[in-house]
Amino acid sequence: MRSRTKGFGTFYLSLFFVVLYFPVLSVILYSFNSSPSTAKWAGFTLDWYRELFSDGVIGQSFKTSIQVALLTSVLSAVLGTAAAIISLSVSKRVEKTIQGVMILPLLVPEVALGISLLIFFTALGLPFGHLTLVLSHSLFCVPYIYIMVQLRLKEIDKSVIEAARDLGATRGQTIRTIIIPLVMPSIITASLLALAMSLDDVVISSYMSGPRSTTLPVHIFSMMRVGVTPKINALCTLILVGTFFIVGLGQLAGKKNRIKEEF
């Protein structure tokens, strides 16, 4: 009886993962199909990848996406970490206020946030492009960094900080030499998450893109609306590889720090 339910459990879980990854794997597989239609498999080709690299618009939007994502993750890492560290020393009421303000961008639906920013930036007369993209992306990245760094801060042994203070370190020195190094793994993981979120955002970016600075997802979205082409498959596959690279980097950074801590 028990082993039968266990067998069913394994079966259900496997089936679930097959369904979860089947669409993704199909996209990858058909990026190598030499027929432009998914109707038949006509043999292996790398033509669609070649076509991608000669497409100037894709190259341009890729560049925009990378620039925006890097700026966003640096800005968000600084702001999110600062907010988390400041939360340590403020009064309970102020801490609650910070938490409330942080959760706000996550509660407002993306469409609503996107159009409210569109209306706001139009009223301010800001030019749409890199600036508006980075500002808006930082809104949904800062809260995640804040939450992740704060979780790590709670794990820190308070006596370490007290010891530093007793030995005469100033607040600034304690933060620089004790707190920041201890939360560094979380900052790195959170920044990479921010990088991935910024690279992936469609909804808010579609309102924030300027005439000469469209992000890659916004461009892909417009391609997808026109129709299915293996070029999109190839592009999605490359993005996937890029994402795995970022995730792998994050894992590596985490592991390295963990090893350091053990000694």
């Binding site: 993704v24 199909s26 998914t38 469609v202 997802p217 979205f221």
Partner: peptide, 21 residues
Amino acid sequence: FWLSSLLRTYGWIILLGNTGI
């Protein structure tokens, strides 16, 4: 969570389309 949401949506177009998988 780490995979592009457009990619995941596009996967269903490839699967469910009239000439889909």
